[in-house]
Amino acid sequence: MNNVDIDRINELYHKSKSVGLTKAEEAEQKKLRKAYLTAIRKNLRGSLNRIDIQNKDGSIENLGEKYGKKLDKN
Rank of each mutant, 00 (worst) to 15 (best):
I60L: 12
D5Y: 01
L63Q: 02
G46K: 01
G46D: 03
L12I: 07
A27V: 07
Q54K: 11
G20N: 09
D72S: 05
D5P: 04
L21N: 02
E11T: 10
E61Y: 10
N74T: 11
G58C: 02
K34F: 12
G46M: 05
K31P: 02
I51G: 01
D52L: 07
N62R: 12
N2H: 07
N3M: 09
Q29E: 13
L48E: 06
A24I: 03
R45K: 15
N55M: 14
R33N: 13
G64F: 05
S59I: 04
K56N: 06
N10M: 13
R41Q: 07
K42A: 07
N49S: 03
N10L: 15
N3S: 14
R8Y: 03
Q29D: 09
I53R: 06
R50H: 10
A24E: 06
E26F: 03
N74I: 15
E61L: 13
G46N: 03
Q29K: 15
S18A: 14
Q29Y: 15
D5H: 02
L48N: 06
V4F: 04
M1H: 07
E26I: 06
L48C: 08
A24C: 00
D7Y: 08
E28W: 01
K66W: 03
I40A: 02
L71H: 06
K70Y: 15
K15E: 13
L48P: 01
K23C: 02
Y13D: 12
D5G: 01
L21T: 00
A39F: 03
D7R: 15
N62G: 10
N74K: 15
N49K: 00
K56R: 10
D52Y: 09
T22V: 09
L71M: 12
R45M: 14
G20P: 02
S16W: 03
R50Y: 05
S47T: 13
K69W: 10
A35D: 13
E11Y: 11
A39P: 02
H14Q: 15
D52V: 14
Y67L: 01
R45I: 10
